[in-house]
Design a protein around this nucleic acid. Sequence first.
DNA 1: TAAGTAAAAATGAACGTTCATTCTTTTTTT
DNA 2: AAAAAAAGAATGAACGTTCATTTTTACTTA
Lengths: 194, 194
Amino acid sequence: MAKLQKSIDKRNALVKATIELVNNNGFHATPMSKIAKMAKVSPATIYLYFENKQDLVNQTYIEVKAEYTNYAFATYEENMSVEDGFELIWKRIADFKLKECEHAMFLAQCDNTPMIDEPSRIEGIKHLQPLLDLWQRGKKEGLVKPLSDFILYAYAINPLSFLMITQKRGAFQLNESHIEEAYQAAWDSIKVNK
Amino acid sequence: MAKLQKSIDKRNALVKATIELVNNNGFHATPMSKIAKMAKVSPATIYLYFENKQDLVNQTYIEVKAEYTNYAFATYEENMSVEDGFELIWKRIADFKLKECEHAMFLAQCDNTPMIDEPSRIEGIKHLQPLLDLWQRGKKEGLVKPLSDFILYAYAINPLSFLMITQKRGAFQLNESHIEEAYQAAWDSIKVNK
DNA sequence: TAAGTAAAAATGAACGTTCATTCTTTTTTT
DNA sequence: AAAAAAAGAATGAACGTTCATTTTTACTTA
């Protein structure tokens, strides 16, 4: 009861500030004092919502990861064909990475550093199951190469992270036709060549 | 003259310690004191070889990146066919990422965080030209899809980083046949479908 | 070759700062 | 008016960096 009374707005502001500061400065240059300042809150207040800095980052990671996978699978239904299902999920993921770029960047940074502790990382992986099931079905139907999920993920999904980061750094501008090209490359890499 | 007298061994030990500690603990949890201890050197000695912590990380990044690209292109020759050239370079890169896993992990972490400053990052990109030239040739010959280098890189090369990181985390074990499968996926994603 | 010496390299301890976290007090809510 | 939430100031630890000193190296001279 006590916890529910606490303003959810403050918690959200803290999570938001964490994402923004870690994205721009890195975890190593994101002190609690700056997070507090950006969230317009006293440093002490952070500790009413989070155990410590690690907990703040872990919870932020898990929340953003859940938001990501929810978005990815929101319109997917299991009775779709493998090809339609894959295209739908892939494009939802692309959409998320472009529209919620800040959140996707934060995930990329977490996934490539020891910034997140192992339990939180494992928690974050759980939600990908619908995609793995889809691939399983695709393998059975002879449409998807019989590869391990890791390799399928590496070629079908992960390249989007690279493109997003590259775009964020200003190296080039992703547009609609790039997305279509990338989707074709993704599908070509995992589909069975007839 | 003065600088050349300084023991190159100590510098190397510092670079090595930086890679190892940043890999295992992240930049944020790698104090100069630990780097010094691991390199069996006084903290003060670091400042004889490097301006400050940022400079140490920047120089380490540039060195490892150069080592990586040197390895990738060591046996490549420009008169090779596009297909042979690509397979050769790709497999050299895969080789490096598996054999020099620590170094490759360090690069991945640098490339996905604001840990490295922008000039050093730009310096690190320079050496990839032979691969871009090969793709250019492949496009002219109608063998490689007419995509931007960023997209080609995202699908042909970058997935190896994901596989390497996943393997390092112990999620699965990469073997020879995985490498062959991954190579096929890479080529399938960028080659023109006849 | 051996002794002497000046410069360079290396060191451990110390400095000032910044950090995550806690303490005490004030403000807000019920 | 009691309890919960929030605040600012305070705290001790840890950090990057520098300082004062010692050790090692390279070179000169006998």
